[in-house]
C-alpha cells in the first residue's frame, strides 16, 4: 500500500482525529454513549489503519509488541487495582464510594479509572491480535 498517495495522505490526516475521537469516547462515556469498550476498539482501529497503510514494520516501531503486551496486563491490573484500593480504604472490593471525600465523587472517580483500565486492555488486545495475524502472514 506504500505507493497509494491518496490513501497515505488521507490516513495521515484522519489517524489523529481517530485517536482524538477515541479519547473523547473514553472520557465522555459518563455523559453520552461510549465508554472503555468502544474507546478501546476505536483506539485499536486507528493503529490497525496505520499498520494497513504504512506497513507492519512501521507500526511495530510505533507500538512494539512487548509494549502492547505490557498494556494488555496493565489495563486489567488497573481495574483490579481500583478494587483493591477500595479494600485498602476500608470499603468493599470494587466499592468506589470510599475513594474520595464524598460518596458520589468517589463513585465517579472509580468509574473513570475502571473504564480507563477497560479501554487500555481492549485496545491492547485488538492491536496485539491484529499484529500477530499480520506477522504470521509474512
Amino acid at each position: 500500500m506504500r505507493h497509494h498517495v491518496i490513501l497515505r495522505v488521507v490516513a495521515k490526516l484522519s489517524i489523529p482525529f481517530i485517536f482524538l475521537f477515541a479519547l473523547y469516547v473514553q472520557f465522555h462515556g459518563d455523559f453520552g454513549p461510549g465508554g472503555g469498550f468502544q474507546a478501546g476498539v476505536i483506539f485499536g482501529a486507528a493503529f490497525i489503519l496505520y499498520a494497513l497503510i504504512f506497513g507492519l514494520d512501521n507500526a511495530l516501531k510505533v507500538a512494539p509488541i512487548n509494549v502492547v503486551i505490557f498494556f494488555i496486563a496493565a489495563g486489567l491490573l488497573l481495574f483490579a487495582g481500583v478494587g483493591v484500593a477500595a479494600l485498602l480504604y476500608g470499603g468493599k472490593f470494587l466499592d468506589y464510594g470510599v475513594l474520595a471525600s464524598d460518596f458520589v465523587a468517589g463513585q465517579h472517580l472509580g468509574i473513570l479509572l475502571v473504564e480507563l483500565g477497560v479501554g487500555i486492555t481492549v485496545a491492547a488486545v485488538m492491536i496485539a491480535v491484529f499484529f500477530t495475524f499480520a506477522d504470521r502472514g509474512r
Partner: peptide, 19 residues
Amino acid sequence: VETGVPNIVTAVLASYRGY
C-alpha cells in the same frame, strides 16, 4: 443519584456490575 453519572449504562457497567 448514587453515582453521579448520567449514562446509566456506564454506571451499571462500571459500578453496579463491576465484578
